[in-house]
Nucleic acid binder design. Structure first.
Length: 295
DNA sequence: TTGCAGGGGTCAA
DNA sequence: TTGACCCCTGCA
C-alpha cells in the first residue's frame, strides 16, 4: 500500500518502507534526542515507543521494521519519525554558511523524533549532570520496574510508565533505578502532572517561550531540560537547547570567544529562526562526534 | 588495587 | 555566582 507517499509492504511480521529520504538510523538515534534505542550487533536498533517494540534497520535505502504492521505505520511510525516533513528543504534553508554546510552534510540523516512528552521530560530530568550510558541505564531500569511488559521474539521489553505509577512508587523504590538525586524531582514532577497543576498537552497551544516557562515550574527542569523536552517531543521547533556541547561548538565556530547562554540563544533565534531546533541537532551531533571544543 | 575527578544541569544559598 | 548532588567510569 501507499501511505502519504511512502510505499509500505508487509512481510514476515514486519514492514518494508520505501522512499525514505534524509534518514539515517545512526544519526537519528545517536544525535542525543532519545535514550531507548539499543544498537544491536548487526547494526540494527531495537526500541520501545509507546506500547510497541520494534527492531529497525536500513537495507538498500529501505527502512525495514520488524514486529510492525502497516496499521502501526499509519498510526504511529509515520509521525514518530517525522516522515511528513521535507528535511531536504530544511537543510537547504540551514546551509547558509560554511559551518552549517559542514554540520548538515555530516549529520545528513538526522530527523527529530516526535516522542511522548511525559517520557521526554522525565528522561531529560535524568540527563542533568549525567552521562548518556547512565541515562540509558536508569531509563531502562525505570521501565523494567514500572512499565508494562511487551514481547518480541520471546524477549521481554517494557513501556515507559505513566505519571501515576511513578508518583505511587515512592521515592525509595524509584531510587533503586539509579537516578540518584534526580529521583525526588521525578516523584514531585509526577505529582504535579497528576494533580493537574501542569497540563503537558496544553503546551502545544502556547508559544515556545510560554511553554518553557510552564515546564521550568517542574522541579529538576531548567531552561535546557525544558527546551529539550519541547524539541524532542515535537512540540516546538523554534528552541535551541544549549548544553555544554552546543555552547562549545558555538563559541569555537561562530563567536571565536567565550559566550554566555543568553547570548547564544539570542543569536540562534535571530540567525536560525523557526529552524533553530533543527540547527541545534546538526550542530550538536557534529560537535560531539568530532569533539569540537572538547578538552 | 585504591582513590578521585567529573559528567549533555538544577537548586539553594 | 558558586558548590553540592547520586553514581559510574576512566585514569592516575
Amino acid at each position: 500500500m501507499n501511505y502519504k507517499g511512502y510505499e509500505v509492504t508487509e512481510k514476515d511480521n514486519g514492514i518494508i518502507v520505501g522512499n525514505v529520504r534524509d534518514f539515517d538510523l545512526v544519526h537519528i538515534f545517536q544525535c542525543g534526542q532519545c535514550f531507548r534505542w539499543i544498537k544491536q550487533q548487526d547494526g540494527s536498533f531495537t526500541g520501545v515507543v509507546r506500547d510497541k517494540v520494534v527492531n529497525v534497520r536500513m537495507e538498500d535505502g529501505k527502512l525495514i521494521m520488524h514486529n510492525a504492521t502497516s496499521e502501526d505505520f499509519q498510526s504511529l511510525w509515520y509521525d514518530y519519525f517525522d516522515l511528513g516533513r521535507d528535511y531536504g528543504e530544511i537543510k537547504k534553508q540551514l546551509m547558509k554558511d560554511e559551518i552549517m554546510e559542514k554540520a548538515v552534510k555530516f549529520g545528513y540523516g538526522i530527523r527529530l523524533l516526535k516522542q511522548d512528552i511525559w517520557e521526554t521530560v522525565v528522561s531529560f530530568i535524568i540527563s542533568a549532570n549525567n552521562r548518556i550510558p547512565m541515562i540509558m541505564k536508569t531509563v531502562a531500569a525505570i521501565c523494567k520496574a514500572y512499565g508494562k511488559e511487551l514481547k518480541m521474539d520471546g524477549d521481554s521489553y517494557y513501556t515507559f510508565p505513566d505519571s501515576r505509577l511513578l508518583e505511587n512508587s515512592g521515592l525509595e523504590r524509584l531510587q533503586l533505578c539509579g537516578g540518584g538525586f534526580r529521583c525526588k524531582y521525578i516523584v514531585n514532577t509526577s505529582r504535579m502532572v497528576n494533580s493537574g497543576e501542569i497540563d503537558l498537552a496544553a503546551l502545544t497551544g502556547m508559544t515556545a517561550g510560554e511553554a518553557r516557562e510552564e515546564l521550568v515550574r517542574f522541579p529538576g527542569v531548567g531552561n535546557k531540560v525544558a527546551d529539550c523536552t519541547l524539541l524532542f517531543s515535537g512540540t516546538k521547533y523554534d528552541v535551541f537547547p544549549t548544553d555544554v556541547w552546543v555552547k562549545r561548538v558555538m563559541e569555537v565556530l561562530y563567536f571565536k570567544r567565550e559566550a554566555g547562554f543568553k547570548e547564544i540563544q539570542d543569536f540562534a533565534s535571530e540567525y536560525f529562526g523557526e529552524f533553530s531546533g533543527f540547527a541545534q541537532q546538526y550542530l550538536f551531533y557534529y560537535a560531539r562526534e568530532l569533539r569540537i571544543g572538547a578538552k
